[in-house]
Write a protein that binds this DNA or RNA. Structure first.
Lengths: 204, 204
DNA sequence: ACTGCCGTATGACAGATGTCATGGCGACGG
DNA sequence: CCGTCGCCATGACATCTGTCATACGGCAGT
């Protein structure tokens, strides 16, 4: 009796995106009504196509799927949000939830979970991998301040202190202080490790 | 008249893998007869299912799709090899070709190219993105020696010189020398940048 | 009002990192 | 058999990084 579920797919790699569309197309009750390749095109497309469920990849040009989720959640709170990602990083889960996501799936989960998640969120359920949820809770919140995160992100391409100081309009000493505190908070021994760990946890 | 083309799909993320299978399943002349999630399972599966074309992702546990391609190429040279990857790194293309690949596709190409590539390689054609091919040629070969690559790879997680020396059974000075020459060859200013650049080019 | 915490800054110090010159050893090509 | 190259090593030097103590203004919570 119910009409088909209208789904939007946001994913930057077209081959993956179209493959997921093919997968969902096999389901009778689901219809992919829109596809976008950039985070910043999500909101408009959701509006235009009266989407029921938006399926969002995190890593996208324009803006991340998490940011896109937040935008949609603010403007159109009725739209259900499924966040889909390659990396099961606890920090991602946390921020996705804070952005109003209804489901959080990792791409190495079985494909059947995708359609299932779409149906469940529409029924008002939340879908979260319990292992990941546990990890997210166990690990605690991001200990880094905004500025520390920003400097760490800027340092992640191998820039030197002098370059960082210039681009961030800070003194060189300040840059070192921030990196130093970040290194200590993450309990590592240099900036490279700090970047790696923060990335892994989804804190960058 | 010709029987269906038997395809093996190797890709570690099950959602993507099954989605690609769904996509290829839409084609009448193609049949996905095997799916594996690890590089080191490819060869056995190709043998077992008398596969015509193997579709290999590069980033996989066990071994990379490129290594798997080389194995298949050596043992069963009649099997056609399509390498599929997220990252259009020229160095990847180069090594894929050296491993005997018949096609090289990036995941952000349109989905239609996938089935098309399968048919073309079976017809004896090679399928390569011309832009990428140009980039691979323009950039030249990997200037790093085996050892330099190895040390750079080991250093990429933020290990310190002392740790590298220990795990690689080298003197600390030697480690520094290798990193220094790698840094110079890549025309960068520190190991972090060296790692980044080498990664980008697919030289790691 | 007082107490944190954040952002910013400085100066000093120790230790890590990058560079350079130099050497030995083995393999491979001319 | 000689030159070149890759691999490994040492020592010396300059620079970059990480740590610590200290400071000041702002802003939030008690």
């Amino acid at each position: 009796m119910s009409p088909t579920i209208k789904v939007l797919l946001a994913e930057d790699q077209s081959m993956v995106r179209e493959a997921l569309a093919a997968l969902l197309g096999l389901e009778d009750d689901i219809e992919v009504v829109a596809q976008v390749a950039r985070g910043d095109e999500v909101l408009a497309a959701v509006r235009e196509h009266a989407v029921d469920v938006a399926l969002l990849d995190i890593e996208m040009p324009g803006c991340t799927g998490i940011e896109a989720a937040a935008q949609v959640h603010r403007s159109l709170p009725a739209v259900k949000l499924v966040v889909l990602t390659t990396f099961g990083r606890p920090g991602y889960l946390r921020s996705a939830m804070e952005a109003g996501a209804d489901a959080f799936l990792v791409k190495d989960a079985p494909a059947a979970q995708l359609a299932e998640a779409v149906r469940k969120v529409l029924a008002g359920e939340r879908v979260i991998d319990p292992t990941l949820a546990a990890a997210a809770l166990a690990e605690g919140a991001n200990p880094l301040t905004d500025r520390e995160r920003e400097i760490l992100r800027a340092a992640s391409d191998g820039s030197t202190n002098a370059e960082l100081a210039k681009t961030l309009h800070l003194s060189q000493g300040t840059v070192r202080n921030y990196l130093s505190t970040a290194i200590q908070k993450l309990a590592v021994r240099n900036r490279a490790e700090a970047v790696r760990i923060a990335r892994e946890k989804g804190w960058l």
